[in-house]
Write a protein that binds this DNA or RNA. Structure first.
Length: 131
DNA sequence: CGCCTTTGACCTGCGC
DNA sequence: GCGCAGGTCAAAGGCG
């Protein structure tokens, strides 16, 4: 086993990723959405048999929250659930693709979650923009 | 030295 | 009324 890990830095890197994945370390797969998130908790959800991470917007006046969980049927796929609208605009150009929509989306999503449910929107964010 | 991340424990709400 | 699950807060450790 010494040679396999000695000359395979890529594999080592992937191995690490998988190890963290098992621990529920979603931080590695956290998609940049233009906001600063702070992880404030992690829990193993028996309902889906996977870990769920809880993020909170670091902005002082922003009560926006984000939940990240692994898709039960699609290992490696991350499902992001946004809660509460942002009281400020996105300050990250990385998410320029949706920067103008981010705040708007978060706001609309809040309504959608209550009216339609998070599936339609979450599904769009996860597979629509990811893939 | 400061900031961020991770882990554990506690509290609240819902269901049976 | 009790039990289970989910969610949140706080403290400690590690890394930059």
């Amino acid at each position: 086993m010494s040679n396999s890990e000695a000359n395979s830095p890529t594999r080592d890197d992937q191995n690490e990723e998988q190890e963290m994945e098992q621990r529920g370390n979603i931080r590695l797969n956290l998609p940049e959405d233009g906001y600063e998130w702070k992880k404030y908790g992690q829990k193993f959800i028996r309902g889906i048999g996977k870990f769920r991470s809880y993020f909170k917007c670091q902005k002082a006046n922003c009560m926006a929250k984000k939940k990240a969980e692994w898709c039960p049927s699609e290992p490696g796929k991350l499902r992001i659930v946004y809660e509460n609208p942002h009281s400020h605009g996105s300050n990250n150009s990385t998410a320029a693709a949706g920067s103008s929509q981010s705040s708007n989306n978060a706001n609309q999503y809040n309504l959608l979650t209550q009216v339609l449910g998070d599936q339609s929107f979450t599904s769009q964010r996860s597979s629509g923009s990811g893939s």
